[in-house]
């Protein structure tokens, strides 16, 4: 009974990750909604306020973490829905690759955007 699972498949991990990222999102999205919108007068910050806000290191880390987790959760979900269309194994692999690229690009873009704003605040 030491190693009962002799095969490593993405299957169980994708469920576990989806549950884990989902639970994290309850917290991170809650924080995001409150900090970004609910406590802000009028619900949206002006450009100058956004720059000040994102320049706070704790906020920067939390927002990037939120982006990573939400993108991961979203694309794993898209993958599950697409797989339920009855794809062939080769198509399933392509879907996984394409979604991974989209995810990395989205997170990269978010980090670049946040860093750009921080840089503008400093200069």
């Amino acid at each position: 009974m030491n190693k009962p699972l002799t095969r490593e498949r993405a299957g169980s991990w994708s469920w576990i990750f989806q549950a884990f990222t989902g639970a994290l999102l309850l917290i991170l999205l809650g924080l995001h909604m409150v900090a970004q919108h609910f406590i802000v007068k009028g619900g949206l910050r002006t450009y100058a306020d956004v720059v000040t806000y994102i320049s706070n290191p704790i906020i920067f880390v939390l927002e990037v973490l939120f982006l990573i987790v939400v993108t991961w959760h979203a694309l794993l979900g898209v993958r599950a829905i697409l797989f339920d269309l009855g794809l062939k194994p080769a198509a399933e692999r392509r879907v996984t690759v394409i979604l991974t690229v989209i995810g990395v690009a989205a997170v990269g873009y978010g980090v670049w955007l946040s860093a750009t704003l921080v840089a503008r605040g400093v200069s």
């Binding site: 009962p4 699972l5 002799t6 095969r7 993405a10 299957g11 469920w15 797989f83």
Partner: peptide, 22 residues
């Protein structure tokens, strides 16, 4: 029976096994 249990766990821990249940 650990051999039997292993075989079952291997069978169900699969994208077409347990994890396809939504």
């Amino acid at each position: 029976d650990s051999a039997k249990r292993s075989r079952i766990l291997e069978l169900i821990d699969d994208e077409h096994g347990l994890w396809r249940c939504h």
